[in-house]
């Protein structure tokens, strides 16, 4: 019994310590930006996490927009309200699906890769050797990846939403015959720049911070064995997905819940 209590205590303490390490790492990464060399490294990383995620984001956005138009049409047409298809597609994408699905895809596509890469750099002593070369791995390895994630994800979310709306247009207007004018104009009358687009971007920035932070920390803190890295990679995807969904609820409640 006492053993059991002691174990819980030890677990709690080690979790708190891990949170502390994660916080220190984030601090180190955020304040490591202003250097010309790092900007180049960051561009390199934007290529890795952003550009290489572009295809999956565009394809997913297109299909999600198309499916939503298809589903929405069959429901709305019963009420003779198929004109509201535009705002339905646009609002769901801008407020929810754009930021959330992008964050989930990003966690799976780029987050896991970040964890594995940093974990392997640790396992192969590359991080140690950077330290011994008097180069701070936080500045050289962690910071560019963090900033690249922060910059890329909101960009991907915007592209996702735009492509999704075009996909909805493709199915709703070109295929199911909703009037193109009403698709765009009712959308325009309903969607507000600040309320919907900017709030979506804010959500996306929050998700970007959380997902990138988790991914990098899990890699940086991984046990440097093949088992440890595979565990860290799994945890990155699981934890960041849960964090995104949980935070989405909180943010939605703050942004749209209360009049």
């Amino acid at each position: 019994m006492i053993d059991w209590v002691a174990q819980i205590g030890a677990r709690t303490i080690s979790k708190i310590a891990a949170t502390g390490r994660a916080g220190l790492m984030l601090f180190g990464a955020i304040f490591a930006l202003p250097q010309l060399k790092n900007i180049r490294l960051t561009i390199q990383q934007i290529y890795v996490v952003g550009v290489q995620s572009l295809l999956i984001i565009i394809v997913s956005g297109l299909f999600i927009g198309m499916v939503m138009a298809l589903q929405g049409y069959t429901i709305l047409v019963d009420y003779g309200a198929e004109g509201s298809l535009g705002p339905m597609v646009a609002l769901s994408l801008l407020r929810e699906l754009g930021p959330v699905v992008t964050a989930l895809l990003f966690a799976g596509r780029a987050g896991s890769a970040l964890t594995a890469e940093i974990g392997l750099m640790k396992a192969t002593e590359q991080l140690s050797s950077l330290e011994m070369m008097a180069v701070d791995p936080l500045r050289r390895v962690v910071a560019p990846r963090f900033w690249a994630g922060m910059i890329s994800m909101p960009m991907l979310a915007l592209i996702f939403s735009a492509v999704g709306i075009l996909g909805g247009h493709f199915v709703g207007v070109d295929w199911l015959g909703v009037d193109a004018g009403s698709y765009w104009s009712i959308m325009q009358a309903t969607v507000d720049w600040n309320e919907d687009v900017v709030n979506g971007i804010i959500k996306s920035v929050v998700f970007a911070t959380v997902v990138t932070w988790i991914a990098i920390f899990k890699g940086y803190d991984a046990i440097p064995t093949s088992e440890g890295i595979s565990k860290a990679t799994t945890e990155t995807v699981v934890f960041s997905s849960l964090a995104v969904l949980g935070l989405d609820f909180v943010l939605t409640a703050i942004m749209f819940g209360i009049e």
């Binding site: 390199q44 550009v51 915007l158 735009a162």
Partner: peptide, 26 residues
């Protein structure tokens, strides 16, 4: 990489313009 990141940025700008001008009423 530079060129591809540039294309990425341009795509984002295009998406923002679409959302700003065509989708949202401001």
């Amino acid at each position: 990489t530079e060129i591809l990141v540039g294309i990425f940025v341009l795509l984002t700008i295009a998406a923002t313009l679409l959302l700003g001008l065509k989708v949202a009423n401001q």
